[in-house]
Design a protein around this nucleic acid. Structure first.
Lengths: 192, 192
DNA sequence: CTCGATTGTCTAGCAGTGCTAGGATCGAGT
DNA sequence: ACTCGATCCTAGCACTGCTAGACAATCGAG
């Protein structure tokens, strides 16, 4: 039995290597540079090996996305729990979110920009994605305002952050307003 | 001279045909289906002809984007001018924007999701793009609130709309909340 | 200790992509 | 009528995601 277990461990380890390498390559040179050939070469295996772990490139993107979702949730929770008062918590959440998107553009793309073959906003949504949304909701529920559904409010707030994140990174907004945008958004959307 | 003029007209007409066909194809089957071969076949010329009009596929996307920007500006202005009162105008703007994104997904992608090789938020930004932003600003300036820069407010409002538009289309938000999201966003961001 | 079967991996290749070099063809101006 | 430049197409390059089939290493049974 232990032989099979060792092989399973090795397989799992190689799978992690694939995901980590894909992420690294995407972060360094963008997802366009993540080709199956380059990825295979970096992990020092041939291309078909990739397909024994994942159905295709899309699933590899999805794996990176799931990893990113978990990290995003952690980052958001760390930021919010370190802040005092509802207003400060939401501001910290917004900054943590945008910071994550700015520091991990490729992961952010995998999560929300590219097709990783993942289901969102459904029952069969993978746990990390649900949890990332939950991390936002936990903090935002207390400032949604009376009679406003927390889920609805979270969707709106999240969409605004997502818009800021993507448009900022695509150089479609003025850089000098970056901080003011966050302040304005938080001040207006939050009900204290 | 008239011979050259005729040729110029024919060239311009063929260029319009290329852009229109690319847009049509993208709207029908998505931008992935817009390959140089398919596009060439549809306009009944060989691929190299495309490259005598545009530097490459990216520039074709850019051309569709510019066309879309003009239409978006028109749609927004039409919607806002037909509404009474600041609150109603902004709500109409939001709905018109989201409606445009929903009805012309490929064009919206060309504008804000794909790389069309266009410069945004700069002096050398093409006129249609500046004008589309201006259309938003015209309406939003009156509800930015005291002491808040109209440009800053427009960026935030636009980013929120963009987030809603993209996340909605990617099935990342609950469909039943669609209308509520717009209401909530407008109510909170607008200062009457 | 050997032999067949199974597992794992790689080489080679397919159909498709964006893009371009070079030759053929056409038509305008002399 | 002829030249010559503009215009267009054929053919091909290097690349993409993905896969069939050959090959080698490993394992269990006799």
């Amino acid at each position: 039995m232990s032989v099979q277990e060792r092989k399973q461990r090795e397989r799992a380890s190689r799978e992690r290597l694939i995901v980590a390498t894909a992420r690294e390559l995407a972060e360094q040179q963008g997802w366009d540079a993540v080709t199956t050939r380059r990825l295979a070469e970096r992990i020092e295996y041939s291309q078909p090996v990739l397909y024994s772990h994942f159905r295709g490139k899309r699933e590899i993107i999805g794996a990176v996305a799931l990893q990113g979702a978990a990290e995003l949730a952690t980052a958001v929770r760390a930021a919010t729990s370190a802040a005092d008062g509802p207003r400060a918590r939401v501001a910290a959440l917004a900054r943590a979110y945008l910071d994550f998107a700015a520091r991990n553009p490729a992961v952010y793309d995998a999560l929300f920009q590219l097709d990783g073959g993942l289901a969102y906003a459904r029952e069969d949504t993978p746990e990390p994605l649900k949890d990332a949304f939950a991390a936002l909701l936990e903090c935002l529920a207390e400032v949604a305002g009376d009679g406003v559904d927390a889920g609805l409010f979270t969707e709106v707030f999240w969409a605004s952050l997502h818009g800021l994140a993507t448009l900022t990174r695509a150089d479609r907004l003025l850089p000098e307003y970056a901080e003011s945008r966050v302040e304005l958004l938080v001040d207006r959307l939050v009900v204290l």
